[in-house]
């Protein structure tokens, strides 16, 4: 991945706020493991939070509130009595959670987050169309949603005539590695026959994918770009774990596409996720089981197996059913 050597340009990093691990008396319905607590967690698309107006959501079982100050910088805090749509003066909020913005989204943390978000260097390329494609609620754990994002075998069945079509169902051999240096799962040489891989595609083609899992609840996909053989479209999914069995999927597209409108590109991605939603919500158990004997993997699931092992080794317990020790 040559392009990953490009310099990472994040948007804004705010620091200097006290990091609060746990407010005494805060409701803790599920224990949050320390790894999860220290991660940056996505909570909202930056554009969708109005200046001086309260937006509310749930993160790791805890109600939080978001607004933006007069400079447009996000402010995030543990919600008390505020309601969605309330007007608020951000200057009056003192107990703030750490905040960072990146890839069009606002991220926060209940622990000691790293200085930066994981890199997606392509996002900074000037000629790309970058867009958030909406936030979709899913009654399933965040790791189940990540695993679905990594999976090609379901294309002909769930994304029929778009990302796949029967009878072209084969998942060819691909490579998976867990990079210790970057601490991420990387699947390369993933190939799949697609009738209409992207909005700009007009005929069926074998599409090549690269998948990264640079964060336990986020994944980035690089796929061959129908418009330019030398470049790759980037689609990322950032999962906001609301509870252990419920999440919001925030989508990012960073496309090389000179003809489609942003509305069309968004609609395409929303169609895809709308197709995944009913399948994901029929998965049981809703938390991702990490014991290898709980489900039946096949060769096509190499990336999912690597992802489950990686979560297990990291010690993530939120949204998963850990291996019985």
């Amino acid at each position: 991945m040559e392009s990953r050597k490009a310099k990472f340009i994040g948007e804004t990093v705010l620091s200097g706020y006290a990091v609060v691990r746990q407010i005494p008396g805060a409701k803790m319905t599920s224990p949050i493991d320390p790894i999860t607590a220290d991660l940056w967690q996505v909570i909202a698309a930056t554009d969708e939070v109005a200046i001086g107006v309260v937006e509310t959501t749930l993160l790791l079982d805890q109600p939080i509130a978001i607004t933006r100050d007069k400079d447009g910088l996000p402010v995030v805090w543990r919600r008390t009595s505020e309601a969605r749509g309330d007007e608020i003066d951000p200057e009056t909020i003192f107990d703030r959670l750490p905040v960072i913005t990146g890839y069009g989204y606002i991220w926060t943390s209940f622990g000691n987050p790293p200085k930066e978000l994981f890199p997606i260097p392509e996002y900074a390329e000037a000629d790309r169309k970058n867009m958030s494609c909406g936030s979709i609620g899913l009654y399933v754990s965040a790791p189940r949603a990540v695993e679905n994002f990594l999976d090609m075998g379901h294309f002909p069945y769930v994304h029929t005539d778009i990302l796949g079509a029967e009878p072209h169902t084969e998942v060819k051999e691909y490579d998976v590695e867990v990079s210790e240096e970057r601490d991420e799962v990387l699947a390369t040489r993933c190939r799949f026959f697609q009738p209409r891989a992207a909005l700009s595609a007009t005929e069926g083609q074998e599409v090549e994918y690269v998948y990264r899992v640079p964060h336990p609840f986020c994944s980035v996909l690089y796929k061959s770009c129908p418009e330019d053989d030398s470049r790759r479209d980037v689609i990322a999914i950032f999962l906001q774990p609301m509870t252990e069995e419920r999440c919001r999927a925030h989508l990012l597209q960073s496309m090389v596409d000179s003809t489609s409108t942003i509305t069309d590109l968004r609609r395409f991605q929303q169609t895809i996720f709308g197709q995944d939603k009913p399948i994901l919500e029929n998965q049981y158990p809703k938390r991702l089981p990490l014991d290898p004997r709980s489900e039946t993997p096949i060769r096509a699931d190499k990336s999912a197996i690597a992802y489950r092992r990686w979560l297990s080794q990291k010690g993530i317990t939120y949204g998963v059913i850990p291996m019985a020790s």
Binding site: I279, Q283, Y284, P285, P289, E295
Partner: peptide, 13 residues
Amino acid sequence: ENRCLHRGVRLSI
């Protein structure tokens, strides 16, 4: 049992 052994999706769908 209402569950595919592969990924736990309900077989009733």
